[in-house]
């Protein structure tokens, strides 16, 4: 069942190739729902994408953080609400271990901006959805802007919905590293 009004679904033309130079960073916050084989997760999030560094803070409806996860060229590092620091190879693995649910994160930063991943096979479906890496992605932009409002992705296992309450483009930075790496352990 699709939660979006039919006439607002993106038309095929809205998807574009994600060239290196077109990719900007963004600073956003919103809410996410993940359905994973009958199990459901709800969380508020704030998500900052600086290109090579991405930080996602998973919160409760009251705004307190359950964990902060960060991905940079050195890998993935995270901190939980008790101050414990974890590291892993992927956000998927780390979110499962630390938060108890898998947060599929690969390519998400490009898809939510309306880009397919360049040099990877993709398919634009007649109903405006994008099919890539085994996912089907449906995107509803904000009114009169390309910024995302609701993004829905599903594959054989997951159904993920993201609602962006705040979204601003920011310049992406190439050299930055996760702040957590400078934290005195």
């Amino acid at each position: 069942c699709s939660s979006m009004a039919p006439e607002k679904i993106t038309t095929t033309s809205d998807w574009q190739a994600g060239h290196e130079q077109t990719l900007s960073g963004f600073d956003s916050s919103g809410r996410l729902a993940i359905k994973d084989q009958g199990k459901g997760t709800y969380a508020n999030f704030s998500w900052q994408n600086l290109g090579l560094v991405q930080t996602i803070e998973v919160k409760t409806p009251l705004g307190n953080s359950v964990g902060v996860l960060c991905q940079d060229s050195d890998g993935v590092i995270a901190e939980d609400s008790k101050g414990q620091v974890f590291s892993a190879s992927s956000i998927e693995e780390l979110s499962q271990r630390m938060l108890g649910f898998v947060l599929p994160f690969d390519h998400l930063n490009q898809w939510v901006q309306g880009y397919w991943i360049e040099n990877e096979p993709y398919q634009l479906l007649p109903d405006g959805k994008l099919k890539q890496s085994g996912w089907i992605i449906q995107r509803q932009p904000q009114i009169n802007s390309r910024s995302p409002h609701i993004v829905e992705l599903n594959n054989a296992r997951f159904d993920i919905r993201l609602v962006f309450d705040e979204y601003t483009d920011t310049p992406s930075q190439s050299s930055a590293k996760c702040e957590l790496r400078h934290k005195p352990s």
């Binding site: 939660s3 729902a33 459901g40 709800y42 609602v163």
Partner: peptide, 11 residues
């Protein structure tokens, strides 16, 4: 129960 209208999901 938590119901979010935009996300159309109850957890």
């Amino acid at each position: 129960w938590l119901y979010d209208q935009d996300l159309a999901q109850v957890t």
